[in-house]
Amino acid sequence: VASEHDFADAFLFFRFVANANDGVTSHESLPDLDAVARRLRDPDGIAVGARRRHLLWYDNSFSGRALSGWLRARFALTSAAATGVATALMLRGDVLHVFDDRPFEPTGELYRLR
């Protein structure tokens, strides 16, 4: 960048400044995804069972609301962080939407473990 610009327009550039009061960065406060995936499958993991969505029944499924609540309770996460972890689990392929490739939502949408 320095070789291309004389920085006369430096006010147009964005700078990211870390907050000095934050002792932990956001990625350090989130749980390890491998550990989360293992705990999902543990006997005390998320409750998996038959769920109804409209007129259809889905075996071995759970709702997005249940997954978000489970993540918040087990790992002491905020709602936003729990949604982020669930989204990351979907991107890795650990959690799948039962019907199609919709993104994770902490609602009544149904998901299952891969």
Rank of each mutant, 00 (worst) to 15 (best):
M90W: 13
L55A: 12
R114V: 00
R65L: 10
R114G: 03
N19L: 14
V48T: 01
L33Y: 13
P103C: 07
A20R: 06
R74A: 08
V17S: 05
A35S: 12
G108A: 05
V48I: 06
L89S: 14
E109N: 06
D9C: 12
L91S: 15
V48C: 00
R74T: 09
F13P: 10
R102V: 13
P103G: 08
A20V: 04
G45I: 04
A10G: 00
D44G: 14
G49E: 06
V95D: 04
L30W: 00
R41N: 12
A20S: 07
R92W: 12
R39A: 08
V24I: 09
R38P: 00
H27A: 14
R102I: 12
G69I: 06
A82L: 09
D22Y: 14
R65Q: 12
W57G: 10
V1T: 06
L30C: 02
W57P: 08
R74M: 08
W70H: 15
F75D: 04
G84L: 11
S61W: 02
H5D: 15
F99Y: 10
A86C: 14
L77Q: 02
A37Y: 06
E28N: 14
F75G: 01
F7P: 00
P43E: 07
L55D: 12
N19T: 14
N21S: 12
L56F: 04
W57L: 15
R65E: 12
D22R: 15
E4P: 00
T83M: 10
R41C: 11
A88Q: 14
D32C: 12
A50S: 13
R92A: 13
D100T: 11
W57Q: 14
S3K: 06
A10N: 02
H54F: 12
D42M: 01
E4Q: 03
